[in-house]
Design a protein around this nucleic acid. Sequence first.
DNA 1: ATGGTTGTATAACAA
Length: 279
Amino acid sequence: MERHDEVHGNSGSWQVATFNVNGIRARLPLVFSWLRDRRPDVLCLQEIKCQERDFPYQAFSELGYTATVYGQKAFNGVAFLSLSEPAEVWRGFGDAFSEDEARIICGLFGGVWIVNTYVPQGRSPQDPAFRFKLDFFAKLLDWFRERFDPQWPVIWTGDLNVAPEPIDVYDPVRLQGEVGFHPDEQAALERVKGWGFVDLFRMHNPGKRQYTFWDYRIPKAFQRNLGWRLDHVMATRFLADRSRECRVDDQSRGVEKASDHAPVVAVFDAESLDATHFH
DNA sequence: ATGGTTGTATAACAA
């Protein structure tokens, strides 16, 4: 049994954000100033691209944030930056599947499980990496079934590397069947979501065209808004019913030394979380 | 145009 009074206290709201930073060391000034200004309760990072010993813990502790890191050399890597320590942490799936790739970390924050994933990009539908991506979703679904219950407060967030619907890419006709917008990936994402998740951005913003990723390789992609919605905050019904809004901070994509992704922020009603007891 | 840019094992990947 855990009460939320002490942890969901950010002026009546409890905020969870996700940000694929594409290298935490290269992005340190941006992430530092973003955290200082926005102060979410939990920030989920993907593509930190460093080992745990190289993570810039000190800079974030100056802001009052604890870092919980699952890294590897050069590639991938996920982490939490949080105002309070997670009560429990799991790194990886807990089996051999992801031993050599740091793509999933899970933490218990004030009675809410947050699962932070960097889903494999897939390269192209013809590449073996595409199968690895589909297998990752299948593995994740098994993992949710084994360890959680859809009645619990669970958040699945991160760079899920799939645009779910035509509205989620800048040119659905031309991009149809490309990696990130392929029916097999959309079906795989939908199966995991079907376990018991609600897409908070789409719930709060039906019909809104809003991206979270703009490719560096397309000239002026951000200015021309040639983007994709790949980063998601999925929440079980319990939390969706207690969420106030979900928005993309796309200003962060327009600055000097930006990541190719923008942060997504989900805001929950702290009082209604505090009023409820689980476990 | 199988291009383009960016971050990391600074050479060649991965995205």
